[in-house]
Simulated assay, not measured.
Amino acid sequence: SIRFVNNKEPRNQTVVLGFLLMEVTEDPELQSLIFILFLFMYLVTILGNLLIILAVISDSSLHIPMYFFLSNLSLCDICLNTTTIPKILLNIQAQTQSITYIGCLTQACFVLIFANLENFLLVVMAYDRYVAICHPLRYVVIMNPHLCGLLILLCLFISILNALLHSLMVLRLSFCNDLEIPLFFCETAQVIKLACSDAFINSILVYFAASIFGSVPPSGIIFSYTQIASSILRMPSAGGKYRAFSTCGSHLLVVSLFYGTGLGVYISSAITHSSRKTAIASVMYTVVTPMLNPFIYSLRNRDMKGALRKIIGRAPSYQ
């Protein structure tokens, strides 16, 4: 569109009122079913992760770095789902795909913050397991509360700084008439593709950040588990090997799920021309993964199962 100034001279600047998100389903008969499905996933995510947080807070035996980082991961999963699913539910209920310009940029900013924060938290959790298994005698000294809190703040600071940088760079762009985002939620890289002004710097920044955040954290996790595997193989007893590896099993599953779905989004966007397949892959990455994380940790961890049973046992029952 064109904005007129002083009713005389037109300026080639677009006044963006909002964007259009991809429709979840084109079949009206499936809308109610899809709404219930997304609502169910959201409630399960909130309840499951809240139980993890409550279990860690209420049980003194879980007041160790491993579960401190796990509770922060659960909080991050709640925030990530809350950033995307309520808007999806609202659009399904209202039978509209619109989202305001400010709302879209805000959503894209928070998606970046919490996705990157989860990325960094997985690295910190891998480092925690590395210290626990490879340096058990120095574990308490190294993983002290001060360092644990500092690591969380550092992860959050880097995530916020990166998201704000991308968001501020998007504000300098102007947009054309085609404002349809091929996802169910706003994502910075997709918003940049809609710009009709020069977005070269934005694209460079996106690729640079993706290359850093997509390579450095996984490399840290791979290094940690290489050292862990080497240390486990040197253990003399089979029981010791099993106990050491069992403490890493849940984290390895979560890492595989997080990076596997993230890689799926990248591959689907690179090799397929179907925007709907890419959108579905992105839902797996941002919605399904946070929902499954509490089940992975609670079902495979004896201490966590015990703490959850205590919480459920203390819950009041109404006859």
Rank of each mutant, 00 (worst) to 15 (best):
I152T: 14
F38E: 00
L39V: 11
D303K: 14
I280F: 02
C109G: 04
M284I: 06
L17R: 08
T45Q: 08
T83M: 11
L194M: 06
L122H: 05
P182T: 01
C155R: 05
N72G: 05
I296N: 03
C104I: 04
S98G: 04
T96L: 03
M304C: 04
D27W: 09
I232N: 10
T25P: 09
L165S: 12
V5R: 09
C76I: 05
K87N: 04
I296V: 10
I160H: 03
S32F: 15
A238D: 06
N144A: 02
L70Q: 01
I113G: 03
F213Q: 09
N162F: 13
T25D: 07
V16M: 12
K305P: 04
F295G: 03
C79M: 13
F184A: 04
V170K: 01
S269Q: 07
I311E: 06
A244N: 01
R11C: 07
G306Y: 06
L137M: 12
Y139H: 15
N144L: 05
R309P: 13
A55D: 08
K87W: 07
A94I: 10
N162S: 12
Q107C: 02
I296F: 01
N72Q: 11
C109H: 05
I99N: 04
T25S: 14
S274A: 02
R302K: 05
P28F: 02
V44M: 14
L112H: 09
L39A: 13
S256T: 15
H166T: 06
L62C: 10
N177T: 06
L117T: 00
N116P: 01
I280C: 00
V216C: 05
R172D: 08
V141R: 13
L194C: 03
L75A: 15
K8T: 11
C196S: 09
V124W: 10
P218G: 06
L233Q: 15
I113M: 06
M22Q: 15
V56A: 09
T289L: 03
R172A: 09
R300Q: 10
V56D: 03
N144P: 02
M291S: 03
Y266P: 07
S58I: 06
F208V: 03
F213L: 13
M22Y: 10
I52Q: 04
M169S: 15
D303E: 14
Y285C: 07
L21T: 12
S268F: 03
T14G: 11
Y259A: 04
I133L: 05
P290F: 12
N293Y: 08
C196I: 07
L150R: 12
S159C: 08
D77I: 10
T25A: 08
V206K: 10
G264L: 08
R314D: 14
I201T: 11
Y130I: 08
R302D: 03
H166Y: 06
P218T: 01
T226P: 04
L165M: 12
E29G: 10
V16L: 14
Y318T: 01
Q93P: 03
G214F: 01
R243G: 06
P217W: 00
L54I: 11
G249A: 13
V287K: 00
A244C: 05
T25Q: 09
S256V: 13
L62V: 13
A210T: 13
D303Y: 11
S211V: 12
I212M: 11
I296A: 03
M235Q: 12
G264V: 02
R314K: 15
I280Q: 02
N293F: 06
C104G: 07
M169I: 09
I212L: 14
Y259G: 02
